[in-house]
C-alpha cells in the first residue's frame, strides 16, 4: 500500500498535479457512476422539455430534443474515456511490439519500418480521418482506428530508439552470453527498461485523443446519434446557439476540464518520474 501512496503523495505535492488528479478522478467518477448520479436516460427524447435552462430537475438544462444535458455529459464522458483508454492502450501495445522489432531486428527491417512510420506520420490527421470514414462510415471504431494510426508511429519510434540504445548494454550482452533467445531478451531485459517513459508520454496523449474523438464527432465523423458524445453535443449547441447557450456550454466545459486534467496530471507524472523527458 505504501508503494502505491508514494507516487500519489509526490503528485499531490505539486499544485497543478493535485488539480489534474482531482479533475481526472472527477471525470472517471462521473463516467462510472453515471447511472447513479442521474435518473434520466441520455437518449430519451422529450420534445415538451426542449431548450430548458438549468433547474433542480435538469441540472444543466435540456437540448433541442428535450434530452437531459447532465445525463448526456456523464454518459458522453464514458464514450470519451472509453475511446481514450482503449485506443491509447491499443496504440501502446502495437507501438511497443513494432518498436522492439525495429530496434532489435536486422538493419534492413529497421530501415523499412522507419520508412513506414515516417510515411504514416506525414499523413495529415484530418485527411486520414476523412479517408477512413469514407471507407468505414462514421463510427466509434473509425475514431479509434484514426487515433491508433496517428499515435503508433511516434510510440514505435521512441521504443525503437531506446531498444537500439539498450541492445549493446552489458546486461543484454550478458543475457546473450547465457544463451537467451531474442524473444526472452526483448521481454525480460529490454521491455521493462523502455516502457516507463512511453507510458508517461502516452498519458500525456490522452487529452489529444479526447480532442480527436470530440472533433470527429463534432464533424459528424465519429459517434453516431443518438449516442451521447461531447463533440456531438457541441455541434448541437452550435446549431441552436441562438435559442440557448447551455447546450454548447454543457458540451464544451467537460472537454476543457478533462483535457486540462489529463494534461496537468501527465506533465506532473513526467516531471516526478522521468525529468529527462522534460521539454518534449
Amino acid at each position: 500500500m505504501a508503494e502505491l501512496w508514494r507516487p500519489i503523495r509526490k503528485i499531490l505535492r505539486e499544485p497543478l498535479g493535485a488539480l489534474g488528479l482531482f479533475l481526472v478522478v472527477l471525470v472517471i467518477f462521473g463516467a462510472i457512476f453515471a447511472d447513479l448520479l442521474t435518473s434520466f436516460d441520455p437518449t430519451r427524447i422529450n420534445p415538451r422539455d426542449r431548450f430548458q435552462g438549468p433547474s433542480a430537475a435538469h441540472l444543466m438544462g435540456t437540448d433541442q430534443l428535450g434530452r437531459d444535458l447532465f445525463a448526456r455529459v456523464l454518459h458522453g464522458g464514458r464514450i470519451a474515456l472509453f475511446v481514450a483508454l482503449v485506443s491509447t492502450a491499443a496504440s501502446l501495445v502495437i507501438g511497443i511490439v513494432l518498436g522492439l522489432i525495429a530496434g532489435y531486428g536486422p538493419r534492413w527491417l529497421d530501415n523499412l519500418m522507419i520508412l513506414l512510420f515516417d510515411a504514416m506520420k506525414s499523413f495529415p490527421t484530418v485527411m486520414l480521418a476523412l479517408a477512413l470514414v469514407t471507407i468505414m462510415g462514421p463510427s466509434l471504431t473509425a475514431v479509434m482506428v484514426v487515433v491508433i494510426l496517428v499515435t503508433v508511429p511516434g510510440y514505435a519510434r521512441i521504443i525503437r530508439t531506446q531498444t537500439i540504445a539498450l541492445k549493446n548494454s552489458e546486461y543484454v550482452t550478458a543475457a546473450q552470453s547465457m544463451g537467451a533467445n531474442p524473444a526472452r531478451i526483448l521481454r525480460v531485459h529490454i521491455l521493462p527498461n523502455v516502457i516507463g517513459p512511453l507510458v508517461i508520454l502516452a498519458s500525456m496523449d490522452i487529452p489529444v485523443v479526447i480532442g480527436i474523438e470530440a472533433g470527429m464527432s463534432f464533424l459528424g465523423l465519429g459517434v453516431r446519434p443518438p449516442t451521447p458524445s461531447w463533440g456531438s453535443m457541441l455541434n448541437d449547441g452550435f446549431t441552436s446557439i441562438r435559442d440557448t447557450a447551455w447546450i454548447a456550454i454543457a458540451g464544451g466545459i467537460p472537454i476543457i476540464l478533462t483535457t486540462l486534467g489529463f494534461t496537468f496530471l501527465g506533465e506532473t507524472l513526467r516531471d516526478v518520474f522521468d525529468p529527462r523527458l522534460k521539454g518534449r
Binding site: 552489458e170 546486461y171 550478458a174 544463451g179 531485459h189 521493462p192
Partner: peptide, 20 residues
C-alpha cells in the same frame, strides 16, 4: 555450450538487468 562456459562482464552493476 553456454551451460559449460559462462562469462562475467566489466561493469559490476551495469551487467545486471536493472529491473530484475
Amino acid at each position: 555450450v553456454r551451460k559449460r562456459m559462462s562469462m562475467m562482464f566489466q561493469d559490476p552493476v551495469g551487467s545486471l538487468s536493472p529491473r530484475m
